[in-house]
Amino acid sequence: MRSLIAGTGSYAPAKILTNADIEKLVDTSDQWIVERTGIRQRHVAAPEEATSDLALAAARRALESAKLDPADVEMIVVGTVTPDYQFPSVAAVVQGKLGNKKAFAFDLTAACAGSLYALSIADRFVSTGAVKNALVIGADALTRITDWTDRNTCILFGDGAGAMVLRPTDEPGRGVLTTRLHTDGSLVSILLMPGGGSRDPLSQKVLDERSHFVKMNGREVFKVAVRALVESCREVLAAEGLTPADVKHVIAHQANKRILDATLERLEIPASRCWMNLEKYGNTSAASVPMTLDEANRAGWFQPGDPILMMAIGGGMAWGASIVRW
């Protein structure tokens, strides 16, 4: 038995911030941003919208597309680094608002790799028969932890949510085949939000140092990302006896166009096989993979049985790749 992605959904908040809008905040230009990132605009959550609101909207769309009654969901996992509260989880809030009583619900932190981690965990429960229906969500409101005075990072991030419904299948040649996850904790310092946690609780000092915002060493992240993604993709392809030429579609965390171009070039997979939407949404962290999957799915990109390579990397550094047959 395997788990099948039986439905997808996504949600992006209504407000759009273009590169021209960002030119008014920091010293940058549309051309500079597009050349280095591929991003043209991003969506920003309204002041009253929290991560769970984004997650809930994406979840409802995924449930609808899987024709699944919210009451029947047995497991909810949310990958996020911007929860509504320090605790409890976004997943608990979503469960409550769905009116579901059956599911156990929790969040996990793997930054931009969060939804791939969540997919991998939910897959273990579904493919072993422990649960029949799982809701996997990636949701983040990164603009809430973005330093709008830092021209190196504020151009990158956007808000959104994506969701997938997993259910068991015995159909041969379909389902989540292999997922491999990795972490290198020696790289914690190259991408993190240092302030506001138990290391350095919220204080005037944290506010003055602006350490309650994302800090990133972009050059190091770029290097690690390309190498880790390439290695990880090769690992899952080898596990399934596939070559890059066999990959029909790529769904990748939309971190930066240059990172993805470099990764695909090294893998020798044509860029045209990778669904790109970061020009519209920016880097939406854990939301990125399921949002991209949903957009490609609704555009009719996948046929049953198509081999899809999924990949993501984020702070930790935490990363992974997956082979799914649609």
Binding site: E35, R219, F222, K223, V226, A262
Partner: peptide, 22 residues
């Protein structure tokens, strides 16, 4: 640009088996 230089450094690291710290 700055990212081209990161890619150049990566390519040189791989070609010559050296590590070039940031």
């Amino acid at each position: 640009d700055s990212l081209d230089i990161v890619e150049l450094v990566m390519a040189m690291e791989e070609e010559f088996e050296v590590e070039i710290p940031d």
